[in-house]
């Protein structure tokens, strides 16, 4: 396992949307899925998870429903709404453009300027 890196500011919302877009999850599940997809390399502050979930639900980007977890416990499951899907799409696009831009800037050598 490589060294864990902290999450860039402002990207948690995007990752949550992505995680629940793959299927409904409870809060702890969101955390596990993000860590699993990232190959355990991403460290998410547990303290910022629930405020983000409630905020996203408040914004209508995700919806919640009480259900039963794998271990037969009552748990709140989050799923993506249509508005959330659109948001995820536009955020992904924005992120890709930004990442490509930053990467090209960082690649620049002195001859090119």
């Amino acid at each position: 396992m490589g060294k864990q890196i902290d999450l860039l500011q402002g990207t948690l919302d995007m990752l949550i949307l992505k995680a629940v877009s793959l299927g409904p999850l409870h809060g702890y599940g969101v955390l596990l899925r993000i860590q699993q997809i990232s190959g355990e390399q991403l460290e998410i502050q547990q303290g910022s998870l629930y405020p983000a979930l409630y905020r996203l639900e408040h914004q209508g980007l995700i919806a919640s429903e009480w259900g039963e977890s794998d271990n037969k416990r009552k748990a709140k499951f989050y799923s993506l709404t249509a508005a959330g899907r659109r948001q995820l799409h536009s955020e992904t696009e924005k992120w890709n453009r930004m990442a490509a831009l930053i990467a090209s800037i960082l690649r620049t050598t002195s001859e090119e300027v």
């Binding site: 547990q46 416990r73 709140k76």
Partner: peptide, 16 residues
């Protein structure tokens, strides 16, 4: 109450 249940579920799952 829901908030409390949800947060406690998280801690218990993590512990498990």
């Amino acid at each position: 109450n829901e908030m409390e249940t949800e947060v406690r579920f998280h801690i218990e799952s993590y512990t498990a």
